[in-house]
Design a binder for these strands. Structure first.
Length: 203
DNA sequence: TGCCAGGCCCTCTTTAGGGCCTT
């Protein structure tokens, strides 16, 4: 049975290219439709957290002042993820920080990302928007705590991933829906989503 | 000085523009 690693970052801003860095990471391992392991840590970004981001996440400069350095936490997180394929909501965002920080540590990042936001746009086009909070509410998924903390968002994304796998399998008559199949189909044009899934199934 | 993400998607498009989504 395939295991995937669902991750979520809290950061000081939107772009590592502009100097933003992670303040917290959470990774949950999902196998056979359930969470089987968890990793979570605050980290010290060595730059101030803007007030508006503290208001959003609740993570303060005082909270990260005593946290381990980013490099230490990222090495631990990379070991925890191992070779498992990755999943995130709006994965382009988390992938940028994942790649940027691991690149500075000379750690290879071979695992591909699947994006629950791109997939949700394909699978639930009737919804008004595809924010994580909207999807959790619309699909009646578990909400384990305050949103915009890494572990809560990672767990909500994990539940969304499991629901997507189940719904795609049921809608397309597939016994198993792998990470690779969904990652390949998530960027297909909307009209070709089903055909791409079928092609991946036949391959 | 003033501005600064970026990839995807839709449409009043495709030689472009703007909304969505993450913090």
């Amino acid at each position: 049975m395939e295991t995937v690693a669902v991750l979520d970052f809290e950061t000081t801003g939107m772009s590592p290219r502009l100097g933003d860095r992670p303040t917290e990471i959470a990774v949950v391992l999902v196998c056979d439709g359930r969470i089987v392991d968890r990793y979570q840590s605050l980290m010290n970004p060595r730059r101030p957290i803007p007030a508006e981001i503290t208001r959003l996440t609740g993570i303060t400069n005082a909270m990260v002042a005593g946290a381990p350095p980013v490099a230490t936490v990222m090495r631990e997180a990379a070991r925890f993820v191992g070779d498992h394929p990755l999943v995130a909501h709006n994965a382009a965002f988390d992938q940028r920080f994942w790649a940027a920080e691991l690149e500075t540590l000379a750690v290879e990042v071979p695992a591909p990302f699947a994006c629950t936001m791109l997939l949700a746009r394909r699978v639930y086009p009737q919804l008004s928007d595809h924010r994580l909070s909207t999807l959790v509410r619309a699909l009646a998924l578990p909400r384990p705590g305050r949103a915009h903390r890494a572990m809560v968002d990672a767990e909500m994304t994990a539940h969304l991933w499991c629901r997507l796998v189940a719904d795609v399998g049921a809608a397309h008559g597939l016994d198993t829906v792998s990470h690779g199949r969904l990652a390949a189909a998530q960027r297909a044009p909307r009209q070709q989503f089903s055909r791409t899934l079928g092609a991946c199934a036949a391959a």
